[in-house]
Computed example of a mutant assay.
Amino acid sequence: MTDKTVASTNAPAQGEVALLPPVDVIEDASGITLYADLPGVAKDKLHLQVEADTLEISGEMSLEIRDGMESTHVEVGSPRFKRVFTLSKELDCEKVTAEFDQGVLKLRIPKAIHAQPRKVEIRVG
């Protein structure tokens, strides 16, 4: 990953408390793949938005406590999470794909055609 391809800007808005889920970003010649660990998040509580050069991942996680049980220790005080990334102009934000499986979100963002490497044919004569 290069800093020019995707940069994380995680400062929550004033007064907003949100978790910052861990994210791995892997870059190859044709684009980037982003993996976000979101344990305890249901698909219907997960929100993705791409606008201009910004990618936002947000939502809520829930921990069900059965009747007759109560929490005695809580390390996750806010069930909301949010990550915001600034995407480079090299990426084609119109072709983002997303998969969500067993608490892991996988996003694939291809590079725009003009930013992908291409082979140049050499003519003789």
Rank of each mutant, 00 (worst) to 15 (best):
K106Y: 01
Q102C: 01
E94S: 15
L87V: 05
L105D: 01
V25T: 14
L63Q: 09
Q102G: 02
K45V: 04
E70T: 13
G103M: 03
S78D: 12
E51L: 12
D92T: 08
F81V: 05
V84E: 03
E99W: 00
E56N: 10
E64T: 11
T54Y: 06
D53M: 05
I32Q: 12
L19H: 10
V23C: 15
R118G: 12
G59Y: 08
P117C: 00
S78G: 09
H47P: 00
A112N: 04
P21G: 05
E64N: 10
V96M: 15
E56D: 12
K89C: 05
K45P: 04
E90S: 11
R66C: 02
Q116V: 08
D101P: 02
S62R: 14
L91D: 02
F85N: 03
S78Q: 08
R83Y: 01
T33Q: 10
Q102W: 01
K106N: 00
E75C: 01
I109G: 02
L20E: 12
V96L: 15
T97K: 15
E56F: 01
V96I: 13
L55Y: 02
A18H: 03
L20P: 05
R118T: 13
A18W: 02
C93H: 11
Y35A: 00
M69F: 10
H73G: 11
I32V: 15
K82T: 08
Q102D: 12
M69K: 07
Q116L: 08
S58A: 11
S62W: 10
A112K: 10
D37V: 04
R118E: 13
G31Q: 09
Q49E: 14
V84C: 06
L87P: 00
K45G: 10
A42R: 15
T97I: 14
E51G: 10
E64A: 11
L46E: 05
L34Q: 03
E60N: 10
D92W: 12
S62K: 14
R83F: 00
E75K: 02
E90P: 07
D67N: 13
S62P: 04
D67H: 15
L34W: 00
V25E: 05
P79S: 05
E64K: 10
V74I: 13
V84K: 07
A98I: 08
M69H: 06
E99T: 06
L105H: 02
P79W: 00
G31E: 09
D44S: 13
L63G: 07
G40V: 06
T72F: 06
S30C: 09
F100Y: 15
P39Y: 01
P22V: 15
S78I: 06
I26E: 15
